[in-house]
Structure formats: C-alpha cells, structure tokens
Simulated assay, not measured.
Amino acid sequence: MGFRGEGALLTDGAPVDVPRDAAREAAHEELRKAVYHQNEPGPVERLVDWIEEQFGRAVDDVASPLGGGGHAALVVLLLLLLVLGVVLWRRYGAPRRAARASGLFTGAQGPRSAAQHRADAAAHAARGDWEDAVREQMRALVRGLEERTVLSPRPGRTADEAAAEAGRALPDQARELASAARLFDDIAFGERPADERAYRLLADLDQTLGRTRPVPAAVGGGTA
C-alpha cells in the first residue's frame, strides 16, 4: 500500500487526506511552551527538533494502517506528547515557578530565633536529612541578619530578596549571599538534591556574616 504525505493515493486509487502539516504545527507549538524551556534550553531544543522529525515519519508510517485521515495524525500526536511529558517530568519534575515566590519562613513552626533555627538545622544534619538542614540553616542565616538589624523583619521575604537586601549592607559578602540564595532555591524547590556540602556552605556563611559589620549608609552623598 503506497502512502506519502498529504493528498497521496492508495493503490486502489482512493485519496488519503492526512492533515500532516496542521498536526505537526500543533505538536510544534505544544513542545515549545515555556515550561519545557526552564532549564538547559540547548538539549531541550534538540529534543524538540528530534520529536518533530519522528512525528513526521510516524504520521507516514501509522496513518495508513489506521485508515488515514485526521484521526491517525491525532493518535500519533497524543502518543508523542505523552512520551515527552513523561520524559520531562522525570528530568525536571513539576514546574516550580510559582513555588519560587514562596516566603523563606512559609511553613515554619511559628516565630523562632536564629539560634533555634541553627539547632534545628544541626539536628536534621545529624540525621542526614540534608534538605531540611539546608532549609533551616538558610532561615537561621536570615533570622540572624534580622536580629542584628542588618535586615528589617518582613513577612513573606524570599531567599533571593533577603540576599539582595543584605548584600547592600554587606557588600563584601554580596556574591556569597546571592550564591547561597540560588543554592537554597535549587534545593528547596526540588531541582537539586541536598547534601552535606550545601549545608556546610550555608553554615559557614552564617558564621562569617556573624563576624562581619554592616557598611553604614551614606549620609549627604558621602561615603561613611
């Protein structure tokens, strides 16, 4: 049975109408949604291109046994999107864009001091619960800055916001603070596994910040 593309004929002369271009365009638009491009766009782009190529071939191979027509292309499209969804879910997990906006102390067990957060972090670390250890240690770091009035207490503040604000008062540690916030986000929102090294990095930075004096704000345009 011969079949090649849109408008081809079966061997008995009956026309086959498979809207391959329309189906491929639908797949193209679905595959290029922003959620699939949050991380490592290079490999994802290559995956999209490969799937588009396979889609075209699959329509040619599958449409005829299925009887041709738009139903064959739709079946192939749905199967390919299902496979892609499973691959991307296993690689990146659920989209976390909204979660990244969560406040650093959201879900914490009531107001706690920096010392209490440090103790909780150390207890989690002793059990090997590195994700919870990282979470509590980041909270201890920020709470410590609040207790020293480097930061003013503010509900809903994210790790990124805390790092940016603290970096202005502690410019020598601004880069380390930004790196710590990124590390916390990557671990807390499921994109990177926590480990002892991440916990130690935050704990060491917490100690360094405790020994660092903030830079006074400039008065009258001069440098304090």
Rank of each mutant, 00 (worst) to 15 (best):
V134W: 07
A133N: 07
V62M: 12
G222D: 14
R46A: 11
L177M: 04
A194G: 10
A140K: 00
M138I: 05
W130N: 06
H37M: 12
E30F: 12
A8H: 09
Q38D: 12
P95M: 11
T212Q: 10
Q38Y: 05
H117D: 12
A99Y: 10
E165Q: 14
R96T: 13
L66H: 00
Q173L: 15
G110T: 02
A163E: 03
G221H: 07
G210A: 12
G110I: 05
G13H: 11
V48Y: 00
A159P: 03
A23T: 03
N39V: 15
R112G: 03
A119C: 02
L201P: 00
D185G: 09
G128P: 00
G70L: 03
P19N: 10
L145R: 01
P19G: 07
A63S: 15
G7C: 09
E53M: 10
R90K: 13
G144N: 06
R97D: 13
R96H: 11
A198F: 02
F189C: 10
R100E: 13
R135K: 13
L104I: 11
P19K: 11
A188T: 05
Q207F: 05
A194P: 01
R91K: 13
G221I: 06
G42C: 04
R157Y: 03
A22K: 12
G156C: 04
G2H: 12
R57W: 10
E176S: 15
G7S: 11
L209C: 04
L81H: 03
A23M: 07
T212G: 06
P43G: 05
I187R: 02
G221W: 04
E45V: 01
G221A: 14
A180S: 15
L205G: 03
R97Q: 14
E52R: 04
P171S: 11
D49A: 14
E196V: 03
A166E: 02
G110V: 02
P171H: 09
T158M: 01
V48E: 05
R211T: 12
L201Y: 14
G5N: 08
P153F: 10
R168I: 14
H117R: 08
A63D: 06
G110P: 07
Q116W: 05
W50V: 01
E30S: 13
F184T: 05
R157S: 07
E131C: 07
H28R: 13
D160E: 15
F189G: 04
Q38R: 15
L183D: 02
E147T: 01
A94Q: 08
L80E: 09
D195S: 13
V59N: 01
R24P: 00
G67T: 03
Q137M: 15
N39I: 12
W50T: 06
G69S: 01
L31W: 02
M138D: 04
A174D: 06
L151R: 02
M1F: 08
A108F: 08
R4V: 08
F3R: 09
A98W: 11
P153G: 03
Q109K: 14
R20F: 04
G210L: 04
S152L: 13
V76I: 04
R211V: 11
V134T: 05
G190D: 09
G7L: 12
L177R: 00
R127C: 06
V86E: 13
D160M: 06
G85C: 07
G42N: 05
G221N: 07
F3D: 06
P193C: 04
F189E: 09
F105D: 00
A217I: 10
V16K: 00
